[in-house]
Design a protein around this nucleic acid. Structure first.
Lengths: 342, 342
DNA sequence: TTTATAAATGTAAGCGCTTACATTTATATC
DNA sequence: GATATAAATGTAAGCGCTTACATTTATAAA
């Protein structure tokens, strides 16, 4: 691989001049610039990003830590972020933390060690204190789906509580009275917030959600299935099922169908997130729009601002979820058609 | 941030010794090792990966280029790769090429510039020649879903042709005679291979697929919908629809249902890939297992071997797809129940 | 103890760049 | 043409590590 030294030699200029045309951050006469460009071309020169970073203490890249590399949720998030950063010629370095403290920390250290200019973190296991300490360390970062009180201005959140509220409210408005819920892992803030929102809406309507009607899932389809099955075995009777996300909702729909329950006629199901395929499920899933893509882009915008003073646009820390009504919810069937077998 | 220099000073040893305990690649007495470790601990020292790479010309990271950061297919691929590399303490640097030549090249250069020790590439737009040139440049790489003749031993592929064949064969075995197909973009090798496989199976059965029954989609759900609608408008009559992937299949199922066609009673639909949610669609989607996760892990294995001489296990370049029969396909309804309205 | 040999540690060059500062060259002003 | 000023280019010191080689120290054999 050709180095800047060989380029400078071939072009008959100094290292500094070559560096200048690469970064075009200083005046270089057109004549020399052309000589340098020609030399680069001729040698097939590619700058060594590592050496650049070391010397300049900048890397033109943003570190992104997500919980998982798969799944519609993180997929949309990564895409939203990358799309916006790419526009500004910043690269995204992605790593994953698997919702596990050690791995999240390792991921952050990896990104810092890589001299990312700033970080976008979707962390779930690491403590607030750790993040506060991190904030001292000068490296800018933004938190997605997390609210650390002292770092509020760098946190971007969906109003999950409101989302849960909207979901339950929608079902209440349809006339439902008998509810069940399959929520996400209670230690995850978004999951518990959603659950709280649901309970608040129900409480407003004078309905208390029985313990027996609440299942804690893990945000995966399979836990939607098993969650529903458990409820079914418990012989709970409900006409509305609120799920912590779309994956679990799709699992629950499948399970319900297996038991011979028609959705939405016998059971209304609502999800959360509005993942890409929600509209292609049968029945098309009523859900809450998470706006992950927007959130991702906002994270990128904030980080561009913090790290490079680039990327105009208003900053926004709280996003409002929106109800998306499709076909998986309807008014409860008051004439008992014996949909629930014994 | 503390540097190795400060550690060496505090520990009262030389730079080299500190470096040695970091990399433990040379003998260091237990006494000094402990002194150094203590000093590191005390200073909160974190090695600067950038400086390490520059000095050692290694980065302990593998570059991964995918077409998109979202979607169940790439999600599984990224996860599979990262999971395996993580086991060997290698990091994954992910970037995306968006199936666009310039962006794919830029992505590769980014990864090379980052001094990745090797690359795993899912490239679609870049030419064979480009890849052959790249192969000269000494940086090891592996290609996923691509077959460059001269680089065959570094290519990992699913036998897409066979997959297409299996899909069509399954429907033929069920007794179908009237076929339609919504394939992926014809310029994508996997898409066209799948289509060839389908045609081969049909031909074996003496069936020629009419041009009018073939639609080219873009692998997205929406093109499944529009593809089906087009077929419907053309008043084509078919009892079996082969789709280039699960996304399009789910779109087509939704569209068919909208037209009042029952799947599978009036129309059998088969997908490809077996994405996570395929089993949660209604009806549960019959499809072809792509084994992306395995392919991802294999790519990681090969790259570990090439770059570090690590990661035992057999290498495998061609994976066999497998038919997964679920509920979206069944024998054709020979008694015409007038499912297709005029 | 002396000497040979191995183990532990130190020295210093260099990885490929950036950038403050110094120097040279061009341009404008009188 | 001389001088002041701005523009263009060059010089050289690092950035934080690794590593070949040199040196010192411990261990074993004689």
């Amino acid at each position: 691989m050709a180095t800047i030294y060989q380029v400078s030699e071939l072009a008959g200029v100094s290292l500094a001049t070559v560096s200048r045309v690469m970064n075009n951050n200083a005046k270089v006469s057109d004549k020399t610039r052309q000589k340098v460009l020609d030399a680069m071309e001729q040698l097939g020169y590619r700058p060594n990003a590592i050496a650049q970073s070391l010397a300049s203490n900048r890397s033109n890249s943003i570190g992104l830590l997500v919980s998982e590399l798969h799944g519609p949720f993180f997929g949309a998030m990564m895409s939203g972020i990358e799309k916006r950063l790419r526009k500004f010629n910043k690269h995204t370095i992605i790593t994953s933390g698997h919702s596990n403290e050690a791995q999240e920390k390792a991921g952050i250290e990896f990104l810092i060690g890589r001299k990312c200019d700033a970080l976008i973190l979707h962390v779930e296991a690491v403590s607030d204190e750790y993040l506060q300490e991190l904030a001292q360390k000068s490296i800018p970062f933004v938190l997605i789906n997390r609210l650390v009180p002292d770092l509020a201005e760098r946190c971007i959140n969906l109003d999950n509580e409101l989302g849960g509220y909207l979901a339950a409210k929608h079902l209440l408005d349809l006339g439902h009275k008998a509810f069940a819920m399959i929520s996400g892992p209670s230690w995850k803030k978004d999951a518990s917030d959603r659950a709280s929102g649901v309970k608040r809406a129900l409480l407003e309507a004078g309905i208390v959600l029985d313990e027996q009607c609440c299942i804690e899932g893990d945000f995966q389809q399979s836990s939607g299935v098993s969650g529903f099955d458990t409820l079914y075995q418990r012989k709970q009777r409900f006409t509305a099922l609120v799920c912590g996300n779309d994956e679990m909702a799709s699992g629950a729909m499948t399970a319900a169908r297996e038991k011979g329950l028609a959705v939405p006629q016998a059971l209304s199901i609502i999800g959360f997130d509005d993942v890409v395929y929600a509209a292609y499920l049968y029945p098309r899933l009523t859900t809450i729009d998470h706006r992950v893509l927007d959130i991702g882009e906002m994270a990128a915008t904030m980080v561009l601002h913090q790290a490079y003073d680039q990327g105009e646009g208003k900053h926004r820390n709280l996003f409002e979820p929106k109800l998306i009504v499709r076909d998986s919810t309807t008014a409860p069937n008051l004439i008992e058609t014996k949909p629930w077998q014994e």
